[in-house]
Design a protein around this nucleic acid. Sequence first.
DNA 1: GTGGTCTAGACCACT
DNA 2: GTGGTCTAGACCACC
Lengths: 141, 141, 141, 141
Amino acid sequence: MPLTITIQTGSSVSIYKQVVDQVCAAVLSGRLLEDEALPSVRVLAEQLVVNPNTISRAYSELVREGVIEAHPGRGMFVSRHRQIYSGAERARRMELAVTSLVSEGFMLGFTPEQIVEAVAVRTKAHGSTKLSRSTAKGGAR
Amino acid sequence: MPLTITIQTGSSVSIYKQVVDQVCAAVLSGRLLEDEALPSVRVLAEQLVVNPNTISRAYSELVREGVIEAHPGRGMFVSRHRQIYSGAERARRMELAVTSLVSEGFMLGFTPEQIVEAVAVRTKAHGSTKLSRSTAKGGAR
Amino acid sequence: MPLTITIQTGSSVSIYKQVVDQVCAAVLSGRLLEDEALPSVRVLAEQLVVNPNTISRAYSELVREGVIEAHPGRGMFVSRHRQIYSGAERARRMELAVTSLVSEGFMLGFTPEQIVEAVAVRTKAHGSTKLSRSTAKGGAR
Amino acid sequence: MPLTITIQTGSSVSIYKQVVDQVCAAVLSGRLLEDEALPSVRVLAEQLVVNPNTISRAYSELVREGVIEAHPGRGMFVSRHRQIYSGAERARRMELAVTSLVSEGFMLGFTPEQIVEAVAVRTKAHGSTKLSRSTAKGGAR
DNA sequence: GTGGTCTAGACCACT
DNA sequence: GTGGTCTAGACCACC
């Protein structure tokens, strides 16, 4: 199964961030294996019909975060060393993020079950996306 | 048990947002009761070693969201709970919050199951926190 | 016709609130269209001779109310209109706004008829305003 | 008809402000005539079951604004010179207040007719209040 | 260039 | 004492 990425224009999430999130998800879920090559900047840009600079931005961030590595002249590859945060640091950051979601969910009047369900649905959706460009309503702003 | 708030510098979640989240959690879990007074802007700022404006901003956001009320000259108080957002807006905000958590979770290397589990645990037991300032890495933010 | 905003120092209405009100009026009267860009924080601050933070605060409030959207790095844009408040909240906010106007009107010595008439006139024709800074009395506020 | 004032505890409008508004309304609508005496601070405080300091505060503000005058040892009297703002200044302040209401009303999705109606209803309500203490829900906070 | 956040310090109105 | 507003200046991430 090849890497598949979907972007949505008109979303409040920037395009480059969407690419980052989905590559992350692919790597961490095992769809992209260590040392595996990613599509080149210009190939992916052409597929998604976005500016190559945007893809370049996304790849740069992934490199900074240790998810992928750049091998100049050959391309981008999934990094072998992915855990850049210590266990304690990961737990601490995760706790903050969970607190944020749970507070927001409760404030909006959702039940614990509804909150858990919403997350469960989303984590699955992350695992199966198609490479295409869906436009929310109006073109790129 | 008095209200206790913890902030982490160096986190991707801004300080004022952490305060907002934790006050929300305290109110909605029953640790802060209706009509109960919150620590004053200046007092909380001093305890957390942050600028009073940062706390003021957090409190302002909570006022706008209907969680607390400002009584100038007297202090901030937990307001009687009311549903201020329309159904569509609630769904929209929940989706944003879930997206944020799931992205962060994947970025930190957690599996879908671990993310869902973390949320499930938190929605059942709002743990207590200690009022202190722990520095993640250094730097002003 | 470009967006024009006027502020009055020395008024009981705070500067940031005046900006919020006038942007709202411009959007809802059609002078600012959906997806249209607003002047940047720094540009508007310079034009009105106020601190950029003051404009930032006004824009933040408009974002929270769903009137405009922030696209970091690109600017602020008028968002597609949506109803974010529940019926009860809408009624509550309207009552507060009416109370505020009526009190101010009586304080200024207007009769009930004059107050109603002033509102009636304004709801029909959103007049244009000039971008300038007129000082009522002096003083920083 | 004697002066009648109503206050509501639990409202977001402070007690002293409610007193100011209603005295203003009474004076400007003619129910309180020029040179007429107002109830003394302690008498009014007793009637409304509030702290005398609160009434004193309200009267002080009314004096500052030229609505009433203090005659030490004799009491408070409606002032003969009520218009402290010039015509232009009054118009300017009124315009700001009207803009604020109309913007808020439109943003909340109300029609011009509904906005005008809400104001019309309220300006009439101002003219007929009873002297009593109605509690919103829970006692003074 | 853009907006977002934080700090520091000031003055105000209100209780 | 309280919160509310404004100014000034800084650093950051994003495009």
